[in-house]
Design a protein around this nucleic acid. Structure first.
Lengths: 158, 158
DNA sequence: CTCATATAGTGGCATATGCCAGTAAATTCC
DNA sequence: GGAATTTACTGGCATATGCCACTATATGAG
């Protein structure tokens, strides 16, 4: 409301805002490159995780993605509708549904992977391999259950 | 649960996935704390930006948020509906609408700021002030126009 | 001045995500 | 064994975001 603080910007102080802003930008950059596959970044990531851990339950998949279970369900719908993913009811526990890519899904994933690689390489070149790795480690720490637990616990380290 | 701990995970290799995953987690942690204000993290960030740059046009605001103009418009709707934000048509250029917080909006922002501070302090304590600052700098670099330009340009740092 | 073009927003549609209230199936307790 | 509780998902509602098409304005070329 005043001109004095004119240049104050939330993301210079708030890590959460900074994270979201950077995520929007990088998401955009990656999306532009894998767009030709018809997939979005999130869908590609999801398919990668499904492919590499085929047969996981929705619950487990949601946890690994650090995503709400119902959110995962919603996000999966267009992929199921388009025949990329399928849910297979577990034989033993009938509450459980196991997720896997269909044949078409695997092909689409491979196609998208070729496009993703270009984005990945650009990022690595521009940002630096070492730093990119360090950034991912940092982000994965923040995404860890341990971190969330400590944060919720109150604050103090140890 | 998987016996083989070999499970390949995208975010160990893909910076974009890692960013989104960490953003979901931290967003959740912050949201839980400012929830009492009735605002979401994004809304709070947006209101902060509006408050500190009162009277900006939607276009300018969207750019600073690294957000699509139409996305900003959508995000603003609930805030306008709830009387937190108002759009004031520019006198000179009638295409332009200037954004500002209402009285109620300012009060709500102050209330949310008290809650946000707790989240901020927890993060700083847990993550480390120095590192938090470094992380924000890194993220702000990724969110910069310069970075996007170079990324789109191809790659080389030239 | 007039017309072609660029600019700022809006509205519709689609995905991304989360919360909450069910539903159904498995597990625990008595 | 049967009721109470927990667990795994689903569906509805709301916000978060982006793309595209369209409208209203402003601007620049002639």
């Amino acid at each position: 409301m005043n001109e004095r603080t004119k240049s104050f910007e939330g993301w210079q102080v708030c890590s959460n805002s900074a994270l979201k802003r950077a995520t929007r930008q990088l998401g955009q950059l990656y999306d532009d490159l894998i767009d030709a596959s018809g997939l979005r970044g999130t869908q590609y990531t999801l398919m990668t995780q499904i492919h590499m851990n085929s047969g996981s339950s929705l619950k487990v998949l949601a946890e690994s993605m650090v995503m709400d279970l119902s959110a995962l369900g919603h996000t999966l719908k267009p992929l199921i509708r388009d025949g990329m993913v399928e849910l297979v009811p577990d034989g033993k526990d009938r509450r459980v549904k196991r997720v896997k890519l269909t044949e078409a899904g695997i092909e689409k994933w491979q196609e998208a992977t070729r496009l993703w690689r270009e984005a990945h390489e650009r990022f690595e070149r521009l940002f630096g391999e070492e730093q990119a790795k360090a950034l991912r480690d940092t982000l994965n720490l923040i995404a860890s259950k341990d971190f969330a637990g400590r944060f919720r616990a109150g604050s103090d380290k140890d």
